[in-house]
Amino acid sequence: MRLKLLGLAAAVALLAACSSDQDAAGTGSVTGATSATAPTTNAGAVRPGTRQDFEVNVGDRVFFGFDQYDLSPEARSTLDRQAQWLNQYRAVTIQVEGHADERGTREYNLALGERRANAVKNYLVARGVDPNRVGVISYGKERPAVLGSNEAAWAQNRRGVTVVQ
């Protein structure tokens, strides 16, 4: 009700103001999609250059192998799209989150998440994104995207997520 009164632009701004934690808990990833998909109800109304545009039309995350931080061909193609988008919207700054699955120890996973976030950052920078636009943070195993104690869940939690600020 209230949201209607705010109008679409404000609603998009609200979405953009959501914390990254809430993104990680988004319904798209929990239901088992291979990459994050934002709620589709507004898809027709996505404004170019917004966080929602990035998540829906580009793809905000890449996945890693167990205890790995090298980028798969699939991850590279996602990051190529991210770089292209970022080179188009040059005012946007991003934070790359590195995450690990739960099958490691806490401190090592923090270091591993930092490696993953930097692998993503370095790739984007190599594709022409100004490093000053790219922050990194590691959450280790603290913020799983998918709940579950199986390989399918862990594979989606070993991720680098590019969050439009």
Partner: peptide
């Protein structure tokens, strides 16, 4: 403590 920067800890 550890410090992580540029992918190295």
């Amino acid at each position: 403590m550890s410090m992580a920067a540029n992918g190295n800890t």
